[in-house]
């Protein structure tokens, strides 16, 4: 390691990097183009990078720890990473195990979020892939126009639709129902776009072979093309679940009674002072932590697909 000044860096540098990235870089991408940094710069660099990493992790660590503190402890030692008197009081309250279950019906929030997320995800996966397939492969009058429509819809910002959405739900008489929460989210333009992009990459020969064998349009879609679309379907499933689990504004304008509150709307009302119960940060942070967990678990298992989703924004054009 000490020989890695600027003069003869090639071998050590390439060995090390080559070993680390052999799996994912088949074209010798792993080898750095330039010599390694001199040792002091490297130490400084690692310190800076570690500091940045800490900046991104510390808030979550504090959130986790504070959930196990008492209210006075959280208020007086907000930065300490060890609870003075560890307690699970916040979690007991959230799960309704203690007497003081005042206005934080956490289990109901959780149930509503889960119900909506599961139904919306199922709907999006089915309807988005159907529409994506039709736009990519089926020939029908108005297809080009419809795709233009999808692209236009993708440009419409959600927050400009708060009052419009309320209007339409109110007019249909479904305001403040599960239908109002779920139905408008069942299809999303970005998902259709992702699926269309994917289906265009499937070789036509596959479908034509099935067609020669006498398979109909729906059968080709369901038994031939859809099974090939696994990576895209997983991406879509994950993005839909994350999107509907974290959805806030739509539920805010689609419902008003407490029984329809989800983790996002319930927590937002609780935190923004609707319940007026002092600071109660351990309780708030524990609820926020629990509401993050499902998406976090998905994220750590399927990070690759989240990355796909983030980059889908880059190819929208």
């Amino acid at each position: 390691m000490s020989a890695t000044g600027t003069a003869v860096p090639e071998r050590t540098g390439s060995d090390r990097a080559g070993r680390g990235s052999r799996k994912r870089a088949p074209r010798g991408q792993g080898r750095p183009v330039l010599p390694r940094f001199p040792v002091p710069a490297r130490v400084l660099g690692y310190a800076l990078v570690a500091g940045m990493g800490l900046l991104y992790l510390l808030p979550f660590a504090l959130q986790l720890v504070t959930g196990f503190k008492t209210d006075p402890d959280a208020a007086s030692h907000p930065l300490s990473l060890l609870p003075a008197t560890p307690t699970t009081a916040a979690y007991q309250r959230l799960f309704g195990l203690s007497q003081a279950a005042d206005g934080v019906p956490f289990l109901r929030w959780l149930g509503n979020s889960a119900l909506v997320a599961v139904l919306v995800t199922a709907g999006r996966v089915l309807f988005d892939s159907m529409a994506g397939y039709a736009l990519a492969r089926l020939r029908f009058p108005g297809r080009g126009l419809l795709f233009g429509f999808v692209l236009a819809i993708m440009a419409v910002p959600g927050v400009a639709l708060l009052i419009p959405k309320f209007l339409v739900l109110n007019t249909f008489g479904i305001f403040d129902t599960y239908t109002a929460m779920i139905l408008p989210l069942l299809v999303d333009a970005a998902g259709i776009f992702i699926m269309k992009q994917f289906f265009e990459s499937v070789p036509r020969e596959v479908e034509e072979a099935a067609r020669v064998d006498g398979a109909g349009v729906f059968r080709i879609f369901w038994s031939v093309v859809l099974p090939m679309a696994r990576p895209a379907l997983i991406t879509l499933t994950i993005l839909s679940f994350q999107g509907s689990w974290n959805e806030f504004t739509h539920f805010l304008v689609a419902t008003q009674s407490g029984q329809y509150e989800t983790l996002t709307t319930g927590l937002a009302r609780f935190v923004s002072g609707g319940l007026g119960g002092g600071t109660q940060y351990p309780l708030k942070l524990a609820a926020a932590l629990l509401s993050t967990l499902p998406v976090a678990a998905l994220f750590f298992c399927f990070q690759r697909y989240f990355v796909n989703g983030a980059n889908a924004g880059a190819v929208k054009e």
């Binding site: 990078v49 940045m52 990493g53 991104y56 992790l57 808030p59 979550f60 504090l62 959130q63 504070t66 959280a74 907000p78 994350q242 689990w245 974290n246 806030f248 983790l263 996002t264 927590l267 937002a268 935190v271 940060y281 708030k284 942070l285 609820a287 926020a288 932590l289 509401s291 993050t292 998406v295 976090a296 994220f299 750590f300 990070q303 989240f306 990355v307 983030a310």
Partner: peptide, 24 residues
């Protein structure tokens, strides 16, 4: 690991993260 750490806040719920920042 760093990439994961930097990316993680983006996938969490905006409401939950705002709660954390209120506390901080």
């Amino acid at each position: 690991a760093l990439r994961t750490a930097f990316f993680f806040p983006s996938v969490t719920s905006s409401i939950a993260v705002s709660t954390v920042f209120l506390f901080l």
